[in-house]
Write a protein that binds this DNA or RNA. Structure first.
Lengths: 346, 346
DNA sequence: TTGTAGGCGTTATCAT
DNA sequence: ATGATAACGCCTACAA
């Protein structure tokens, strides 16, 4: 049915020149006869010649494919992030391999391994919440596969990473809440392993100290991000005699579960207890009780930036050989935003 | 820094055998000395030998990579679908290339083109809402790249596809609504080009006829799926003197916009006017006013099934050469589900 | 400016 | 049971 795809060899034969001439003509090699070049390019077009990507990636050890590993694509945060990645990738003719860790280290290892075996040019990854060993990622260096982390980044210095500084955002959030008259502010934080959780806590503490308030550690709870974990944490928070007037949740998925629990306990959400959170996802527009304020984390921008760094790394790699001593770190300032639905009310 | 990866050549040299022997030993070729086989496999393991994926995909014209193109990953429907695809893919050691069309045909063409150039083994695609020409997809046949459509499938017969029969689900939904006493039922449908829209309309009409009700075409409106489009359609529906008692929306994103509009018009959602929809996405659990009933479309299952079909196709291709005359069509029965949050209330 | 030849890692065909 | 060799499509010294 379908005739074989034309190759440079075919073009060479038809034009009675050598394959190297064709190869060079097609890649606009400087010293090649203008006339020949034109002929070759014309015939290539006529034949519908397209370079064989597989042959090239085999020969050049470069495939223009980068892997992306993230916890859950169904979370709007990550779907936005991958959209940013995709946009930056297309810009430079890169293509992306997709994999989810489902917040499970073992699965993360499996996926990373699969991508390594596929020999992706590089890997963009947002760590699983459980990840606290990094051998499976360090291994990639040995295979000379650059890694850029985004949002869920590892704690060590020598890595390429893009993330939001939630510390500042959290300090700002506490300030906002206090200025609104909320003094007893709870923090429903994420897994303690996560750097992002630590930053939130630091900001929480600093925010209090700036407002000359004492931190009550009874008001700090942790969830494993599951609905059950969040319910349990909420139970603890609501059990106290002095209930929190405000609750800051780890992210908007936790927020939604927390709100659900509060409602089961017949609390007036955003009245009796107000909620604040992180991410500012579009989907919250449609929810019954969005957080009053949210720390925007720019997932799209993070993805985009991460991919741009990756492209830079791959270019450097090509140019300077194997020198990948320096690291790129991009800290995107998180900003506090008020939810549109409540912006007028206050 | 990093020493070169071991190749079969290296193993051959160390063992003083030929590369062919090594190749055969590693692939468990039947007539090969047990002793040699053991030696080779042992050394391969010791050296940490791994087959060079790029070399193999070049030689074998097969990369174990399939492309996935869908409209919007941020829609939970598609993120579930790709998760099903990923699961089935991993099962058979396939890896997936990711691309979004953003419901734009031109972009769909670009992405499909990029994947073709990357020489994916096959393509899974859920069409953009605008797609009504199919040349860019038909082209793939010429390149011998099999395509499996899921959910948003093309209208012609000779294609591999997985989709939900929304006709039956819609008939069932009308039945349910009528039995609850709602007689004036509106349909806020999607773009008319979409097969899925046509099915909904057919079901809507059939549902009425089964209940001996007359269809009032004033109650059928169309949205282009944008918030503005949905608002406009809602405006028309609510302008009528005899307002609808129930509104069936194209999907739950349209639903959310529709509900938002209804609220702006001070309608009591799910009281004054009840809402029904399609997809039954988990996210609706968190929304203020989920649809009372929804036609579940099993996105995860669709993705999984689509990938399984793809794997079958790729196997057949290998075995029988180029004979791809027959097509796989999988029709998943859609089922009507009541929203958990309202299940008790009625 | 162009041609020749070797090689990337693997598999397959033909010998032995 | 094993080895030698060609071939996949492309690139790139090295020659001419």
């Amino acid at each position: 049915m379908e005739n074989k795809l034309p190759t440079i060899k075919e073009i060479a034969k038809q034009l009675n020149v050598s394959v190297s001439t064709v190869s060079r003509a097609l890649s606009d090699h400087p010293r090649i006869g203008l006339r020949t070049k034109m002929q070759v390019q014309q015939l290539a077009k006529d034949l519908g010649y397209e370079p064989n990507a597989k042959a090239i990636s085999f020969k050049q050890k470069k495939s223009f494919v980068v892997g992306v590993v993230l916890p859950f694509i169904r979370e709007e945060f990550f779907s936005q992030a991958i959209s940013g990645i995709e946009a930056a990738a297309m810009e430079s003719n890169y293509t992306i391999l997709f994999g989810q860790s489902y917040d499970d280290v073992e699965r993360e290892k499996t996926v990373v391994e699969a991508m390594r075996k596929q020999q992706v040019d590089g890997l963009l990854i947002s760590l699983s919440k459980e990840t606290n060993t990094y051998d499976h990622l360090r291994l990639l260096e040995k295979y000379n596969i650059p890694v850029v982390y985004f949002d869920r980044v590892p704690p060590f210095e020598n890595a390429n990473k893009v993330y939001c500084n939630l510390y500042k955002g959290t300090v700002e959030m506490i300030g906002w809440l206090v200025s609104r008259g909320y003094k007893r502010i709870a923090l429903l934080n994420g897994p303690e392993k996560l750097g992002a959780s630590k930053e939130r806590l630091k900001g929480y503490i600093e925010g209090h100290s700036r407002k000359k308030l004492k931190v009550d550690m009874q008001l700090v709870e942790v969830t494993d991000l599951s609905k059950e974990g969040t319910y349990a944490a909420m139970e603890n928070l609501l059990r106290a005699k002095h209930q929190p007037q405000a609750i800051i949740t780890f992210n908007e998925y936790v927020h939604m579960d927390a709100v659900q629990y509060a409602q089961l306990q017949n609390k007036q959400v955003n009245k009796e207890i107000v909620f604040a959170s992180y991410a500012n996802l579009p989907i919250t527009t449609y929810t019954a009780h969005p957080p009053l304020v949210s720390v925007e984390q720019y997932p799209y921008g993070q993805g985009e930036k991460a991919m741009e760094i990756m492209i830079t790394l791959l270019q450097e790699k090509k140019e300077e050989g194997l020198r990948l001593d320096h690291c790129y770190t991009e800290e995107i300032p998180a900003t506090l935003v008020m939810h549109p639905a409540v912006r007028g009310q206050l």
